[in-house]
Amino acid sequence: MSTTTGTIRERPAPLSDRHAERVVLATDGGLAGLSAMRWIADRAATHALEVTALDVVDVPERPGWDTGRPHWAADRAVNQVTDYLHSAAASVVCTASVVAGDPLTRITAAAEDADLLVLGTNRVGMSRHLVASFSTKVAQAASCPTVVVPRGWERSGGPVVLGVEGDGSDDGALDFAAHEAEVLGRELVLVHAWQLTGTPPPAYAAEIDRKAAEAAAGGRLSAVLDRAVARYPHLRVAPLLEHDAPVAALVRAEQGASLIVVGSHGLSRIDRDLSDSVSRGVLERPSCPVAIVTPDRVAG
């Protein structure tokens, strides 16, 4: 498939004319949280932001929980965020919040009315883990789009990459990815991977099956490409059809990317535990920020 190039992009609206994006930054003051903080400061150049810096002290919410070293450390972590954003991104409206309770529950609850949830991860590179990281659990449980920023993140001029399922569930992720690509002035790359499954038949039949599977996959990718071009005529869009496992294809495509976007199908916890989902596979070893977008919630 060939690259589709749109017409000259219109100049983005001034920040003062845009709806402020409500962002929750979950942090514990560690290196991963610092990378997420820097990513938000960089985002402030192209987005109007209202940020809540949140740290959760993992203790029961009882009288006196907000005394002692754990609360002091959490308070220091969120104030570090507000101080940094005040100096590095003065346009950001930032507040600090320290709460007690189960971190996963409190973070996802805080993000229910947000446009975007951001957190960092210490799992980077090509590592593989049997147990999902905390950031992965949060991203798959959150009801709003969630961006996981790898420790050591640095700005990239590469494209925004969207993992395409082609089963009708891509609309939310497509809108999110296209918005990001438009605002950043980057190319949007649509990646769809396909594989033959089942017992390999004789050679001649296998070739026919391969051609049929490839044609079907190409059709699914073309349908998403057509939607992208129709909705975002000023955006440069490039389709990429890969004969490989979805996670492997996306990991290759994300090298040098500004952002990788994948959809979440709202799997149950048991389903997520039993399946090596695409979103988890990408989240567990990111080399660039990864956005997980639920079908019914899109930041804008």
Rank of each mutant, 00 (worst) to 15 (best):
S2D: 14
G6C: 00
T7A: 02
R9T: 04
P12M: 00
A13E: 11
D17M: 02
E21M: 12
R22E: 01
L25P: 15
A26D: 01
D28W: 14
G33H: 08
R38F: 06
W39S: 01
A44S: 15
A48C: 07
L49K: 12
E50G: 14
V51A: 07
T52C: 07
D55I: 04
E61M: 06
R62I: 12
R62G: 04
P63A: 04
G64V: 08
W65A: 06
T67D: 05
H71A: 13
W72T: 15
A74D: 05
R76C: 02
N79E: 01
V81Q: 13
H86V: 00
S91M: 06
G101A: 11
I107M: 05
I107T: 05
T108K: 00
A109I: 02
A110M: 08
A110Y: 01
A111F: 02
A114C: 07
V118T: 06
T121E: 11
R123C: 06
V124E: 07
H129A: 03
V131Y: 13
F134V: 15
F134E: 15
A142Q: 00
C144A: 00
P145D: 00
R151V: 04
W153E: 08
R155T: 10
G163M: 03
G168Q: 12
D171H: 14
G172H: 08
L174V: 09
F176Y: 03
A178H: 13
V183I: 01
G185A: 06
L188K: 11
L190Y: 11
L190A: 01
Q195S: 10
T197C: 04
A206L: 13
E207S: 14
E207H: 15
D209P: 14
E214N: 10
G219A: 05
V224A: 10
R227H: 10
Y232A: 03
P233C: 11
H234D: 13
L235Y: 11
L235M: 12
L235W: 11
R236E: 05
R236A: 09
V237I: 14
A245K: 11
A245H: 13
P246K: 14
V247P: 15
R252E: 11
E254L: 12
S258I: 03
V261Q: 02
V262A: 01
S268Y: 05
S268H: 06
R269T: 10
I270H: 05
D271P: 15
R272Q: 09
D273S: 12
D273C: 08
L274T: 11
D276C: 12
D276Q: 15
D276I: 10
S277F: 02
G281A: 00
E284R: 15
R285S: 10
V293E: 03
T294K: 02
D296W: 04
V298C: 04
A299G: 08
